[in-house]
Structures are given as C-alpha cells and as structure tokens.
Design a protein around this nucleic acid. Structure first.
Lengths: 337, 337
DNA sequence: AATTTTGATGCAAACGATTTCGGGCCAAAG
DNA sequence: CTTTGGCCCGAAATCGTTTGCATCAAAATT
C-alpha cells in the first residue's frame, strides 16, 4: 500500500537511508543542497513516514488517551475540544474511550494502554470506581497521568477540578436565601470525589445558616435514568418532600424535570433547583435551569498545555502532586427563583 | 519502561523468541505443555505486546479514525458510542477528530491518516467541504472509508444516512396540516448532502400541497451562533415572516429559540417549528420541540459491524458503492402544535 | 609536507514483534 | 533399512525509522 518509504527515497536519490532520514529531520550533519534535494523528492512522491516504525524506534507514540465516563455530556465534549485545540498544534493524536461509568470497562481500557500505546493518559474516573489498583499500576509504570473532574486523590499526580466545595456552598446559600428550608442533595455515587466536595459545601452552608438536615436528604442515585426518575418522583411525593434540590450532576437535574412532570409539581414554585451542569441550553428549558458550569474547554486546554510541556521538552519532571482549581460560573435562572 | 518483551520471556523460559511468539498466538506448531508454560509466564510477568512492533510487522494498526464536524452534538456522540460498542469487542481503538466544520482542518486531519496509522476511516464531512480531492486521495490509497450523515456522494463507497428526503417531506406536511402557509427552511450550507435531501423533501411537500414558495424562504445560515440568531430574528421581524420553520440541523433550532425570545414572538402560537435533532431533552424545552431524530447509535454500530467484517476476515471485498438508509423517528411536541 | 580537523555521507545495529525456512526427532509406512 | 510425514523448535529476515560509529575527501593547522 504505502510503497514510498525512506529506502525508496534513498534509492531514487542515490543516497543512503540514513542520510535521507537525517535530511528530513533537518540534522545539522547534512548539507543544505542535499537537504533541499531530499525534501523536494519527498514532497514530490508525497512521502509520509510510517508512524509505527517511528514509534517503535523512538519509544513514543505522539498519542494521548482520553478516558471519560460518558460521551453524551457537554462537559466532557468541551473538555476534549479543549485538549484537542492544543494537542493538534503539536501533531498529537487523541484516542478517546468511554467507560460508560463501568469500572470493569475502565480497568480493561486502562490495561490496553500500559504497553506504550499512548504517551499519556487524561481521565475522569467512573462513578463506580472504588478500588484503584489499576490506576496505581498506570502510575507506577510511569505513564504520565492527569485526572480531571472525577479525580482520584490517592494517586500523586496533577488533578484539575473546579472550585466544587465553594460552589456547592454558594448554590446552597442561594437556595436558602430564596427561602428553601429542606434542601435535598442528589448525587451519583459516594465514590466520586467531585460529589464529595460539592456535598461538603452543601453541608457547611446548611450548618452556617443553622438549618437542620437529615441523613436521607442526601440521595444516592444510580446509573439508570428510569430508576432515578422514579426515585426522585417518590421523594417529591413524600410527606417530607424537599422545597429545594441541589443536583450534583446534570443528568440528575434532567431526571428531576421528568419527575416533577410526573408528580405534577411545578419546579420553581413548589420547589427550587440548582444543578451543576454544562448544558448550553439550560436557558431554554421550562423552567430555565440555574446552573453551575465548569470552564470545561479551559480545563481541557490547560491539561493539554501541561502535557505538551512534559512530552515535548527534554528532562521534564513528573507531574506535581497537586489539585488545580478553575473557577466555575453560576447562572441564576427561573428554576431557583 | 516496558522491560518485559518477547526476548525477555524467551530467556526466562529458555526458549527462543519465535517459540514464545507462536505459543502466545496459539500456533499449532507448539506443544500444549510449552504453550501452557509460556502463557503462565506471560501472565505472571504481565507481558503486554508492543503494539507498534506488531503494527509495523503486520501492516495494520487495529485503530479506526472517526472524523466528525463537531463534538458538542448528541448525534455525533451517540454515533461514536455505537461504533465503540462494536469495535471494543474486537480490541480496536478509536482515534477521534473534530474538524469544527472547517475544511482546512479536515484536509489536515485526513492527510495525517494516509500513512497507515489507521485501518479505516469513518467520517461525516464538514459543511464547508466542496472540493473533495483529499477524500479521493483517501479512497485511491485504498484506506477503507465509510461516510455517514454528511456523506460525499462522489466517492464510491458505502454511506449511512437516515431517510432524510422522506422526513423532510413528512415534517413539512405536518406543518402544512397544522395550518402553516409560509414555511421557511433553515440550512447550514448548500454543500452538505444531508441538507439537500431534506430540502428536496420540503420542496416536494410544498409542491404536492400546491403551496407557493419563494427562493428566499430557504435560509442559508453560517457557523456563527450569534449571526444565525440575528439572521433568524430579522426574518421573524420581517413583513414576510414565516408561520412555520423547518430547521435542518439542531443548532439552527436552538438559534430560533433565542431569536424568538429576542423578537418576543411565541413559538407554537406565532409560528411553528420542527427540527432535525437528536437532543435528548427536546421534551423539556419551552415550548417542547418537535424533532426528527436519527437512529444515531444504530448508525454507529452498523458501520462498525461492516468495518469489523472487512477488517477481521480475510479476502473481503471493498465496500460497495451504496447508500444505506436507516429510519428516523418523528416526535411531535408543542413547538409544532 | 605531514597531520589534524571538519564536513558530509554511508554502514549497520537497534526497536519488538511475526513468519519463512529449515533442522532435528521420532513413529509409521514402504 | 529407507522414506515419509508429523511434531516441536530455533535462526534469521522482515516491517520502516533513527542513530552511534566509521569513512573519506577536502580544508585547516602545525
């Protein structure tokens, strides 16, 4: 298929393969006239270097793996757009995997990547991830690793999140100021870091305002959209029903819309809601949704910048063990008014 | 980094590398006891074959490129989910690229993939793609190629779309039956195939019902969200304003919501709208949106099945030059009622 | 004039896997 | 007793690049 390789070029030019290679890589050892000849011929024959031969030799792939829990989610799409924006400039490629919030899938994907297929991994862990030995393996193998959003605190590397604690706090205060007394907190799973931080903010806000709260106001939802709707509907039907809801992830806010519709309760009037979400059309919903949205694109591009620095410059140290917070934005809309 | 390779295994086992390779590939030439020993040792040392060495030798990468015009779009996300569902079973990897509707980016991406980096390409062309020599190059190089949604008719390969003509027709008829007399058609670009088919359906429906239509009812929008909103708002303000709108892509429907808001017109009452869209929450908008949604996941998985058949079985013929239509679904909601 | 330096290029060995070829060995068949 | 053929295995070539080292002429130095 790809007939034209370095050897072929060399034969055509009556040079040795090594000279051709060096000329193409602009080595100082090659004279300008020769370089020009080689480059001209390469262009003419439309020579494209074989990436595998190069990767094999150089022990690097110019490829980065991005692992996300789900694809149908604006936040993750925006993050990947941000990553791509930077990596494309450097000629890096992106292998994208979705775990579908499944740990087993996550483990399998990660295991595929331990053999040098990628130069680095950027990931957001699944909501079911509890045991983290597979992530420790990645780290111990020396594969550069960055976490974002759903981070894994135990691995000593750089992590990117937004100011979740602060926003959990602010959102809760906002609901309190709007008169809510019984604010429920919807979360996907206790495992995920992000949920925990947002929860802390929520709890501290209640505490600060001297509001009591019950253990069962913290609602653990599942992966099943239907089950979540049922669960939330049941809560909205309940005697002890909330007058405020803080949804820690977008999909639970959506489920709440459907649950409200089922129970014939009117959001904003019968109960108020704020959600963490990067949905673009939050303003078009009925009622429009008050959101806390993360700087997704920037998180992606910042991660990529860090990666490119490490991968393209010599003698770079390992990623520092630190958490970088990027500020979220709150947009107040009808659902909490 | 990755110390454990075939040579190392061979040394450990006091066998030759070739025997180890054969044992791992379950060759008939190797005795069962030897195979067992090798496999046990490989597992113990957690041997992972080097993908580049293998790709170099075998001239295949077990990687597929997916090129889409934008990431922040449920349709494309679902298609990729569908592709991944199948390819993951076969151990294939997905390189995902977004062109951001930019032809130049598309050309660049495509050129990266001509050197054997991927075993096949699945793509939806950008709305700006007019000249198609870069796609012809892909085809002539023999890289298996499948188009979907935004297809390129000129390349003789298999394409997947939904029944766009039919649905353009049906949607228009629906609007007519709801009493619309002046139905405008919003499209991104004349270049994209998908828009043209939908447009044909629209035109034929008008013709069938004996409704007149003006050339300027077909509105060419751009990539800029703001510009589109302004343009649509201007149309809604106009003397000759529509009482019905058919949006050929989701983002134009969204723009119409904002335009309506700006002009203080009430969708559904002052004008009706139907849109092609795979948005999950169309039902939660205000007013809820009547949509024609494509079987995105199935389109993805069907494409992947075809690909896997070609790539994993010997002596498979090239993809047939045909268009496969998968039926869309219309969901009637408030916006057209 | 003899030697060293420099500049430009070629040779050959990697990188890690697969595979062709061929070599023993042993049992069954001629 | 020779031949055939299956079975098990190893040596070495191969895929396309990059790179340490060798080469070799011309220029510079002593």
């Amino acid at each position: 298929m790809t007939e034209v390789n370095i050897k072929y070029l060399a034969a055509k030019l009556k040079l040795s393969p090594s000279t051709v290679s060096r000329a193409l890589n602009d080595s100082y050892e090659i004279s300008q006239p020769t370089k020009d000849r080689v480059i001209a011929m390469a262009k003419e024959l439309n020579y494209q270097p074989n990436p595998f031969a190069r990767s094999l030799r150089e022990q690097k792939s110019k490829t980065i793996a991005v692992i996300i829990p789900e694809r149908i989610n604006n936040f993750f799409s925006q993050v990947i757009d941000g990553i791509e924006e930077i990596t494309q400039e450097y000629g890096y490629h992106l292998l994208v995997y979705s775990t579908h919030e499944n740990v087993e899938t996550e483990r399998k994907i990660v295991s595929y990547l331990l053999n040098g297929r990628v130069d680095a991994i950027v990931m957001s862990v699944s909501s079911q991830t509890k045991k983290i030995d597979h992530l420790e393996t990645v780290y111990s193998k020396g594969v550069p690793l960055i976490f974002f959003d759903r981070i894994c605190q135990e691995i000593p590397t750089t992590k990117f999140i937004s100011n979740d604690y602060e926003n959990g706090f602010k959102a809760t205060v906002h609901l309190i100021e709007k008169g809510c007394k019984k604010i429920f907190f919807l979360m996907l799973s206790k495992e995920i870091s992000i949920g925990r931080e947002r929860l802390r903010g929520y709890q501290d806000a209640l505490k600060k305002y001297g509001l009591p709260y019950e253990e069962n106001w913290i609602v653990q939802c599942s992966q099943s959209e239907e089950a979540n709707i049922k669960l939330i509907a049941k809560i909205l039907y309940g005697l002890d029903r909330p007058d405020g809801i803080l949804a820690s992830v977008e999909k639970l806010a959506i489920a709440t819309y459907y649950a409200a519709r089922e129970t014939k309760l009117e959001m904003a009037k019968d109960f108020k809601m704020v959600s963490f979400s990067n949905m673009k059309i939050a303003g078009l919903l009925k009622p429009s949704l008050t959101t806390i949205s993360q700087p997704a694109f920037e998180i992606g591009s910042e991660m990529a910048k860090l990666l490119m620095k490490k991968l393209t410059k010599p003698n770079q140290p390992a990623f520092e063990n630190k958490v970088i917070q990027m500020p979220s934005q709150i947009d107040f809309r009808e659902s909490s008014n």
